[in-house]
Amino acid sequence: MNYIQEGFITAIKLIISFDRDVYEVVFLSLKVSIIATILSSLVGIPLGFLIATKEFKGKKITITVFNTLMALPTVVVGLFVYSLISRKGPLGVLGLLFTPKAIIIGEFILATPIIIALSISAIQGMDPRVRTTAMTLGANTLQVALVIVSEARFAIFAALIAGYGRVIAELGSALMLGGNIKGYTRTMATAIGLETSKGEFGFALALGFILLIVAFSINISLQYIQQKRK
């Protein structure tokens, strides 16, 4: 029991003293997951909008595929991207393996289907009068699209937060693609894994606390948005 108590005390000390090693890991995690989420939303929201608003053959299957991809196992994503960017892989020459960029690619693949699927449902759930109202006020096709997205903003923002929540605590692909290099590709999740196995319980616990705070903040924001929508 003693080591748990000591671990707690060390963790609190590390957090309060703004320990450089701890916060380096925290900032890298936040940075890569924010970049990945932004990239995913740049692709996911327009794609979700198009899938939701256009009629095409195979639309139902496409939506089912994206819904299914929301449950992509992170290790499989890691494995897939690893095979592409490892030195022997087709994109090996780019030298991406074990860089923050590689983590971003993995997280992008994980977050995008979530943002697409939730954007589709956000747009499909919109009142059809939004479109006709904008049209009757003289809006062109792009302006109509922007009004629809703007009216669905709370649901779309919830999609972004869900995407971010998926990648911030992600371990499998970050470990395989980033390599857990100290000061370079070490994220909160990978560091917690490593430090625990090294016996650095306090350090791991400090990161665990911060990760919990981030995860809870995401959940609280989601709930706040859900309430605002009503």
Binding site: R129, V130, T132, T133, T136, V147, E151
Partner: peptide, 9 residues
């Protein structure tokens, strides 16, 4: 056109 049962943003 102002539609019947209009929608406000």
């Amino acid at each position: 056109l102002v539609q019947q049962n209009p929608y406000l943003f």
